[in-house]
């Protein structure tokens, strides 16, 4: 078991965003979390690497309890990639320096080693020729690919994707998804929050449907998309289909 989440709770003021979420992830698995907006999907991801502190519940990475106050969370975060909806590339750094920063300052690699590694990851997402470009000089799709390279360079045990294509123009979504598909096929462990049902269907080992802070239903894509059990899942899938069209 690579990741185990036990009974996570998170409350913002009066609103309880997570109301007891539990699931687990095996090494090499890709799980996709779907559900209406405002149901705590992003909060869940951020609680997993404690960018947001959960109020209650536990998270284990392999055998280490991440949520223990004794753990050095910076060491843990270096092992968990995070890809944001709006990329969050460091605006004052080139693509290369974005990827190099963690390698040099967190992993302590020399500049030479970090450069080699960073260039390899940029090449992997097809952007070796943009190494010297600043984020503002790149398209949204390119920025997101750089941010995936930045996460990959750290040799993470898993990568969390928080709606990685939601801020992209439609014609740029494909390039990011194809990088993610390759990653999943190469055996990377991934937890993806997305509305891209085509991606979910073709890549996910399991779909998790969340609503109002709880997991309503989970299962293999075949089963969850074709014969959802819970009426809330049926309703959500019907609305998504209306919005994005049928089979993709």
């Amino acid at each position: 078991m690579l990741l185990r989440v036990e009974d996570l709770h998170k409350r913002y003021g009066k609103e309880e965003v997570l109301r007891g979420v539990s699931f687990s992830l095996e090494k090499g698995e890709t799980k996709v979390i779907i559900g209406p907006s405002g149901t705590g999907k992003s909060t869940l991801l951020r609680c997993i690497n404690r960018l947001t502190e959960p109020d209650r519940g536990r998270v284990f990475l392999e055998d280490v309890e991440i949520t223990s106050p004794r753990v050095n969370i910076n060491k843990i975060r270096a092992q968990i990639g995070f890809v944001f909806q709006d990329f969050n590339l460091f605006t004052h750094l080139t693509a290369l320096d974005n990827v190099r920063l963690g390698l040099m300052r967190v992993k302590g690699l020399s500049k030479k080693e970090a450069t080699e590694r960073a260039m390899r990851e940029l090449a992997r997402v097809g952007l070796a020729d943009k190494a010297k470009a600043y984020p503002a000089e790149l398209s949204g799709g390119q920025q997101q690919r750089v941010s995936i390279a930045r996460a990959l360079a750290m040799d993470p045990k898993l990568i969390l994707f928080d709606e990685p294509t939601s801020a992209l123009d439609p014609e740029l979504i494909g390039e990011v998804l194809s990088v993610m598909v390759e990653l999943a096929q190469s055996g990377m462990t991934m937890l993806v929050v997305t509305h891209e049902m085509g991606f979910a269907r073709s890549v996910a080992d399991e779909i998790i449907f969340m609503e109002k802070g709880v997991i309503v239903e989970q299962g293999p894509p075949e089963q969850l998309f074709k014969s959802p059990k819970h009426p809330r899942t049926v309703e959500f899938l019907r609305r998504i289909t209306e919005l994005y069209g049928g089979e993709k």
Binding site: N49, L51, N74, K75, I76, R77, A78, Q79, I80, F82, F84, D86, N88, L89, F90, T91, L101, G102, R105, V106, S147, R150, M154
Partner: peptide
């Protein structure tokens, strides 16, 4: 400075000071 910058830095494993 956008809050996402700090978030992304912390997500990489940088300390607050870094």
């Amino acid at each position: 400075v956008k809050s996402g910058q700090m978030l992304a830095a912390r997500a990489l494993g940088l300390t607050r000071l870094q």
